[in-house]
Amino acid sequence: MNNIYKPYLAKIDMVRQETPDTKTFRLSFMDPETAESFTFKAGQFGEYSSFGDGESTFCIASSPTRKGYIECSFKAVGKVTNALKDKDVGDIIGFRGPYGNSFPIEEMYGKNLLFIGGGIGLAPLRSLIWNCLDLREKFGEITILYGARSVQDLCYKPELTEWAERPDVNFVKTVDPGGETSDWDGKVGFVPTVLKELAPSPEGAVAITCGPPIMIKFVLQNLSELGFDSTQVVTTLENRMKCGLGKCGRCNVGKTYVCIDGPVFTARELEALPVDF
């Protein structure tokens, strides 16, 4: 039987504490055949399980160009995420996936890319960012704007430094007012505000944004004011999910199954959806 609900077993090879409540796991599949054949695209997600506690939906945060493992980053907020938080290197968890559509990377070839992330919302962008950086010559300018509530809430700190140091990346980091420390060398201000100051040109550009709903709302508004057409803006939806397979009905927005048709949508596509997310 092809049991669509059965997860692969995956071993935690590495754990990184990103922020006080966010962790990154690096996972490798136990079954050598799966490890060999598993492929995915940036933007796809999976169902990660802590056996006995249940499953949770996270995007795959590593790049498809980095083979042999996958990574996920999650914030401990509820039952499953708190159970996962207590796992350690060597522990085994479940993974089902990859599910959903992906970022339209081929359509981005030759364009200037503008990544706008907030908090844990950098996770899906990180997959795409590394994917693009690993194929650097295919893209125009790459700008990354990343912000969090406070300095300690910034994820992937070593990578932020790496991006900042790269000559082929224009990296801007910011924290919300009040979230800065005395040695903070980035900007202070909300992501949408900093975006406006940066005033990127919409000419030949694609903006990809992920973050808390309120941030997305204003980022979309500001991008539109900057002249970005809604077809040039890509984001992801995070509806509550269970199956990830288009069966359980939980993620539905109108006729759209976010788990099958999404999670990646252009701002144009979002405009056409009923406001049920």
Binding site: D53, G54, K242, C243, G249
Partner: peptide
């Protein structure tokens, strides 16, 4: 109606 939940029991 065909909606469902997925839960673990141990």
């Amino acid at each position: 109606c065909h909606c469902f939940d997925i839960v673990d029991e141990t």
